[in-house]
Amino acid sequence: MKSSVGQFRFWAIGLASVWLTLFVFFPNLLVILTSFLTRDPQATVSLPINADSYVRTLDLLYLQVLWDSLRMSLLAMVFCLVVGYPFAMAIVSLPKRWQPVILFLVILPFWTNSLVRTYAIQFILGNQGIINKALLGLGLIDKPLQLLYTQFAVILGLCYILLPFMVLPLYSALEKLDVRLHHAAKDLGAGPLSRFWHITVPLTSPGIVAGCLMVLLPAMGMFYISDLLGGAKNLLLGNVIKTQFLHTRDWPFGSAFSVILIVLLGFMLWLYFRAARFVNKQGGLNGSDF
């Protein structure tokens, strides 16, 4: 019997540990290592270790791409926050039995094919799409508006695909909010705006950071959204990484761009834990289990 205890335990712990070490931990280290190697036409990458790839990301051309990508992703993130926050607040204020239903309707599209949904957006924004046809039909415009293949289209697509990732953490942060704090503040004479700004926002800051993290980082990598909606000019970081890996075959350079993403992830996680600690200290939440 003793050995059966050991055996089951061994497999239960071992399988996942080995898998995650081999295909998550180890590969991430390899990306960092690769970014310091040199491109080699025969063997893909080879030694001398150097920081050339990082120096090259500072090239004006790539800085421009990086900035464009970051700006589009940031705008998508801000837009998701602006729509997602009131949305999550509206859900929280619903009767308890309706909350899971609405939440489910928001999350449902996340599980469907996002490429297909991006294609649907392309279909709607095109010169012959519904929007242009409607505007032409109403006589509001004489010729189709150029909606597709613009930065606007890319940002819209990113918001469309990533909104659930913003709503979910915001909802769970807002749900934990103690209403008594609001009553107390009201009794002490604080107006609705002041209550929102001084109570709701600080106490949901972990949710805000988590939502921003879950929108911003994927947004920078979703190459098919910029491909289908932005055309050849509006690139995301994901397009650059993809080109470096699959076409130009400059792996160290592509890895250097990915390391930028990893660093950004690290920074936002740090921000999140700081916000969570702050909220716990204020005593607004009973232990963050997020």
Partner: peptide, 29 residues
């Protein structure tokens, strides 16, 4: 068990890693 914290943090990290980073890290491995 030893390494439990490491295992759960690897689960956490693999959920948050942007897909594109996971994609190239797998290609390299």
């Amino acid at each position: 068990f030893k390494g439990k914290a490491l295992l759960s943090s690897m689960v956490f990290v693999s959920m948050l890693t942007p897909e594109i980073v996971m994609a190239i890290s797998l290609l390299i491995v």
